[in-house]
């Protein structure tokens, strides 16, 4: 009977056929900001609750190798290189949230080293020439194995390029296909039409697989050519026309160094500004 229902049940207002409910504000999880305390390789540290193990380790000065992790991008935990041991189990440190006091993390146990060696032994066969992978492989004593080198295309499928492209807006490239055949590409395995030639993908690629070339005021990347617009101040060619258009107009067309200068002079003007009596400063 309705009278026996203990809690009011929202959600009945939505009739069939309505789209999924839009996210509703959640009550705050906890009113007090909490710190959790524990150790990384025996080094005591206290961090805000939810901090990742990787960040805590780095704050302690403990180095953990990473490939798919990038400070500016959402984490994915897919390369499995940054594993560490916590509560007797392997955890992916770039995503493991420290939520309880008294955590004890170890980043150099035999199990951790074995796991990293395993991951590197697989990735070195994909990118045997990439300096960063080679350096890591050397460090962990892993060599490429021709028996299992099936498609050494230089890409380790970390997806940093894809996440950078998404973060910047165009979402021009993605990882397509599955399993071993998964690779980074534009839609339908064609040059990505939505690409604006911003280079974010190439600059955050850990293996140098994504290449580009600049010549005669043009930039080539992903089999597409972009014209580089001259900076209205100094004439340097830094941004592509598509990039300037994508972010909305010409105001930001100045190259980074000119933009710095322009901003500095604006600031100077503001500092020199003397407000007439009774008016608030801008």
């Amino acid at each position: 009977m309705p009278g026996q229902l203990e809690t009011p049940r929202p959600g009945n207002g939505r009739g069939p056929g309505a789209p999924p409910a839009s996210p509703q504000p959640e009550p705050p999880r906890s009113a007090t900001p909490l710190l959790v305390e524990g150790t990384v390789n025996g080094i005591r540290i206290s961090v805000p609750k939810g901090t990742t193990l990787l960040r805590a380790a780095r704050l302690c000065g403990v180095e953990i190798p990473t490939l798919c992790h990038h400070e500016g991008l959402p984490p994915e935990g897919s390369c499995r290189l940054c594993v560490a041991e916590i509560r007797g189990q392997l955890a992916v440190s770039c995503m493991f949230p420290l939520r309880d006091d008294g955590f004890k993390a170890l980043t150099d146990t035999p199990a951790v080293m074995d796991a990293r060696r395993y991951v590197l032994s697989l990735l070195i066969n994909r990118a045997p020439k990439a300096p960063r992978i080679r350096k890591l492989a050397d460090e962990y004593g892993v060599a490429p194995d021709p028996r299992f080198m099936k498609d050494p295309d230089g890409c380790v499928r970390c997806g940093r390029c894809v996440r950078a492209c998404r973060a910047n807006g165009p979402e021009a490239i993605a990882l397509a296909g599955r399993g071993f055949g998964r690779s980074v590409t534009g839609p339908f395995r064609k040059p990505p039409e939505a690409c604006i030639g911003c280079l974010a993908c190439a600059l955050c690629c850990p293996t140098g697989k994504i290449t580009f070339a600049e010549k005669d005021g043009a930039r080539r990347i992903w089999d597409r050519e972009f014209s580089l617009a001259p900076c209205p101040e100094c004439g340097a060619r830094v941004f592509t026309a598509e990039q300037i258009a994508f972010y909305g107009g010409s105001a930001s067309a100045a190259c980074p160094s000119c933009r710095k200068k322009l901003m500095a002079s604006e600031l100077k003007k503001a500092a020199a500004y003397e407000a007439p009596d009774g008016l608030p400063l801008p």
């Binding site: 499995r80 697989l122 099936k150 380790v156 499928r157 990882l175 599955r178 399993g179 071993f180 998964r182």
Partner: peptide, 19 residues
Amino acid sequence: GESCGKCAPCREGLPVILE
């Protein structure tokens, strides 16, 4: 064949075992 290919061990490691 059904591995999604997201993480390195499954994507690269299963073909090694299969080989």
